[in-house]
């Protein structure tokens, strides 16, 4: 709070890292915020909602897997542009992306979420939870929408979303990391940069602990996505094998 940081990281270094991460986020965020706000009045019409609801379950799963995979490709690019990420060993880069890329997609989702109408930008328009009915996982969808709503209630700025995304991605407690210490150092620096940005933006005390709570919510969402995918795969193994994007299968494979 007095402007001092850990003795090993200078203020200039934190400022530089915060700038690097914010820039990487803007360059790889898939949709600009202004673009999303302009589109927010475009919600799906009832007959379009009916169209999604009457799709066969496997077709809707495939569509969502494609959309998630597209979003994840941007997250991979975000990771690559974070100072220090590409210096980690390749095993750890993969471990972090396997565990964290969907979490970052959920964080980024709050940018594309309209709290007033409880809708999210999906497949060209804003969609409510009913659009995803055919997936057959109402509880997961409700949790994802609730998460987006609670993230929105924090009113994070773009640089705060960027720094929080990097913090989530660089989690040093993921299983199978080979050089845990390196990841830990990078995550600590990112956390300091996040604190620095929060202070600079004059955010209220307690915002950091609210963000920490979101970390466990994200883990639970991803665990539930995996459970729902396993249940789907048990019924439609061939659909997953032949029609799901290869990157999605690599990330969420059994």
């Amino acid at each position: 709070s007095n402007g001092e940081t850990s003795p090993t990281v200078s203020m200039a270094e934190l400022e530089h890292l915060a700038q690097n991460i914010s820039k990487s986020h803007v360059e790889t965020c898939q949709y600009l915020r202004e673009e999303l706000q302009q589109l927010s009045w475009q919600a799906f019409l009832q007959d379009e909602v009916d169209g999604y609801q009457s799709k066969p379950r496997e077709v809707m799963w495939q569509l969502c897997a494609i959309k998630i995979t597209e979003a994840i490709q941007y997250v991979v690019e975000f990771a690559k542009r974070i100072d220090g990420f590409m210096e980690l060993c390749q095993n750890d880069q993969i471990v972090l992306l396997k565990a964290g890329s969907l979490e970052v997609v959920f964080v980024r989702m709050c940018r594309a979420f309209d709290t007033q109408n409880n809708t999210v930008y999906f497949d060209g328009k804003y969609a409510g939870p009913d659009v995803f009915k055919a997936l057959g996982c109402d509880d997961l969808i409700t949790s994802v929408f609730d998460f987006a709503k609670s993230m929105c209630s924090l009113h994070l700025s773009e640089d705060e979303i960027a720094l929080f995304s990097a913090f989530v991605l660089l989690s040093a407690d993921r299983t199978w990391l080979q050089e845990k210490l390196q990841v830990e150092k990078l995550q600590q620096k990112t956390q300091l940069a996040l604190q620095h940005v929060l202070q600079k933006n004059q955010r209220e005390d307690g915002i950091l602990s609210k963000l920490r709570c979101k970390v466990s919510a994200l883990r639970s969402l991803c665990a539930r996505h995996s459970e729902n995918l396993s249940a789907f795969r048990a019924v439609y193994p061939d659909i997953v094998r032949s029609h799901f994007p290869p990157l999605y299968k690599e990330l969420f494979g059994p």
Binding site: V76, E77, K80, I94, K98, P246, L247, E250
Partner: peptide, 20 residues
């Protein structure tokens, strides 16, 4: 490595397959 072929490719490519 074989198990994460696409991730490896994405990490090694200087430009991403997505149109950024």
């Amino acid at each position: 490595k074989e198990k994460h072929k696409i991730l490896h490719q994405l990490l090694q490519n200087s430009t991403s397959p997505v149109d950024l």
